[in-house]
């Protein structure tokens, strides 16, 4: 079976446009704290969530907007929740890192790695109460060293749970390069637990759709859990207003106030060798630049990639985008109503 690329693009574009409204609201101060965007993850979300059925469950991390939208949750409810309104998805009590929908069996958490155990429990209920359904656990590669996530992988294999572990790998754990704090290869690690594994380009929605589809079919048929390793970028970094991106995008303006203290520290009498100090300074200077460079490449943007495949039918593409534009404009206006 082949995926309906138009259908997948519709979901991805809708998510992107919705999050652009979220970004505007956040910039206007209508949304508080560090807003984590799904920009760059849309192909992973669409390729998986669009194949979910009634009774399937999702354990989400702090980046839950795209999967929830694609699962069919009313966008106005999400937007109002992010604004902390009493008529939001969770009464304005949860907020952007804690989005829940009981009727869709979706639960989020802002604690890194906690979607592992959450996914395992959803999968247990699926196995026990609703055979043929499954659970998805979304997390980033930064979570891959969190004990509870690794324990969940073992549990899922030991109990043959219908669970798909989805690792969205952007190579950065906030401001730390994940490779610098992670041993071995992730797929090999997952295989060590006895998980089926698959590695995929997370910007290629068709590839995600195919590999996730196979894994989901397998697990629905009782074939056990899968670890899906999807590579992606985060076009706005860890969250909106992320300091690494602010520095990386405007090094001169953002670095100037930091320079004095850094140079004073570099020349203090006691401490590391001059070689160590130079290495630290170089690291501090290159991380922001590298993060921005790696995360904002156009060809790694799933929207751009998918759109290129559809652009030959420009009329249909523009009509689709115009239609979604109208919908999201309307969502924005309704969300702002008293």
């Amino acid at each position: 079976m082949e995926p309906d690329l138009w259908y997948l693009y519709r979901h991805m574009f809708r998510s992107r446009l919705f999050e652009q409204v979220v970004q505007v609201f956040w910039e206007q101060g209508l949304i508080s704290f560090d807003m984590h965007m799904g920009y760059g993850e849309e192909a992973i979300a669409a390729g998986i969530v669009c194949q979910m059925v009634d009774g399937d469950a999702m354990a989400l991390d702090h980046r839950g907007t795209p999967p929830l939208l694609m699962r069919g949750i009313e966008p106005t409810l999400i937007l109002r929740e992010l604004m902390g309104r009493p008529d939001g998805l969770c009464g304005g009590l949860g907020g952007h890192m804690h989005l829940y929908s009981r009727e869709h069996l979706c639960a989020s958490s802002g604690i890194v790695g906690s979607s592992g155990p959450a996914g395992a429990g959803f999968a247990l209920a699926a196995q026990y109460l609703r055979p043929g359904t499954l659970a998805i656990a979304f997390f980033g590669e930064g979570a891959i060293n969190q004990g509870m996530l690794l324990e969940s992988m073992n549990l899922a294999v030991a109990w043959q749970l219908p669970l798909l572990f989805v690792c969205k790998d952007d190579k950065w754990s906030i401001s730390t390069r994940s490779a610098s704090v992670t041993g071995g290869e992730l797929v090999e690690r997952a295989r060590g637990f006895g998980l089926h594994t698959v590695e995929v380009d997370g910007a290629d929605v068709e590839a995600v759709w195919h590999s996730a589809g196979e894994a989901m079919k397998r697990t629905r048929d009782g074939g056990g859990p899968t670890f899906l390793h999807a590579h992606c970028v985060h076009l706005e970094g860890h969250h909106l207003g992320f300091f690494l991106f602010r520095v990386g995008r405007d090094q001169i303006k953002e670095m100037i106030p930091l320079l004095g203290p850094l140079l004073r520290s570099a020349t203090r009498r006691k401490g590391g060798s001059s070689r160590e100090r130079i290495r630290s300074l170089t690291d501090i200077a290159t991380r922001p630049r590298d993060a921005v460079k790696e995360q904002t490449q156009k060809e790694k943007d799933p929207l751009y990639r998918t759109r290129q495949k559809l652009i030959s039918d420009r009329d249909r593409l523009e009509a689709l985008e115009a239609e979604i534009n109208v919908e999201i404009q309307d969502v924005m206006e309704v969300a702002l109503e008293d």
Partner: peptide, 15 residues
């Protein structure tokens, strides 16, 4: 993230 959150100490004392 202490190397960047505590960039001054990281500079003085190294990795």
């Amino acid at each position: 993230d202490v190397q960047l959150f505590q960039a001054n100490l990281y500079t003085q004392f190294g990795g």
